[in-house]
Design a protein around this nucleic acid. Structure first.
Lengths: 133, 133
DNA sequence: TATACATATGAACAGTTGTTCATATGTATA
DNA sequence: TATACATATGAACAACTGTTCATATGTATA
């Protein structure tokens, strides 16, 4: 670590010292980088993407969610736990049934940005961006 | 699949048919869900998050990038390939040195949204959101 | 209290991912 | 053309992730 700070690792000969120290000044900590990565990790699975997209439309129970995305209820339940842990969804109970819904609007915004990046100038994303609003 | 479409799987008894078919109407395709998941997957690693955050500040060569985030040059090079493939970074060559930079502003926006979700009412994200602009 | 049922949880397993180490590629300079 | 060096790539391996299957929990109703 001290070695790193002095830029004196002999294997590395091309370092632009000013550039490196300038960027280090503003660099995020490992913890923050990890938190950020964790959010994206939560969204980095097509099953969860489909679940969140469905919940964007309306609240749904576990079993409906499974039917909508054509997945097993067990799988959906496992994934819901991940979404719950990461505060992306909330739920209310009505008898035996749990109704899940989006915790807030962050997911919508993230999906919007994600689709805009994915689509570039392609047209297929237009209707979904439109739906997201 | 026909079974699914008719909602007649005997194991599933709690389906709200109207809800399920309503959401299916607007549901994204598997391909779109996968594309969206792939974008987030690209951002779902703290090494890549740090690399992108560094490149948000200024363009850097592979070796500088490695020094900034304290990772091996080989690892950084592997990760850069992933970022290149997913069109998040671009590069220019100057002699033997390759300078990498962000491909566009989508990453900034995604990080901003991600941090806002992660931070909720916590203060630690303020300076980074401020830096991102 | 017994039964049914919606959902949750745990263990197991295959598939994926990130790092390291060794080696290859491509560019500049002697 | 030979050497140095910045970067890329491939193979190998450990760590992680998502699904399935079996089982548990919790709630309503008979």
């Amino acid at each position: 670590m001290a070695d790193f700070d002095r830029f004196d690792r002999c294997e590395v000969t091309c370092i632009h010292e000013e550039a490196v120290s300038a960027v280090r000044q503003v660099m995020i900590s490992d913890d923050v980088a990890q938190s950020l990565a964790d959010i994206f990790k939560t969204l980095a699975d097509s099953t969860r993407v489909k679940m969140l997209f469905a919940l964007m439309h309306r609240e749904l129970c576990v079993c409906d969610l499974a039917a909508v995305i054509r997945a097993s209820e067990s799988s959906v339940s496992h994934q819901l736990r991940i979404l719950r842990t990461n505060k992306l969804v909330k739920f209310r109970r009505d008898g035996k049934i749990l109704y899940y819904s989006l915790a807030d609007d962050h997911v919508k915004t993230l999906f919007k940005q994600g689709l805009e990046h994915a689509s570039h100038d392609e047209a297929w994303a237009a209707q979904f961006l439109d739906f997201i609003k």
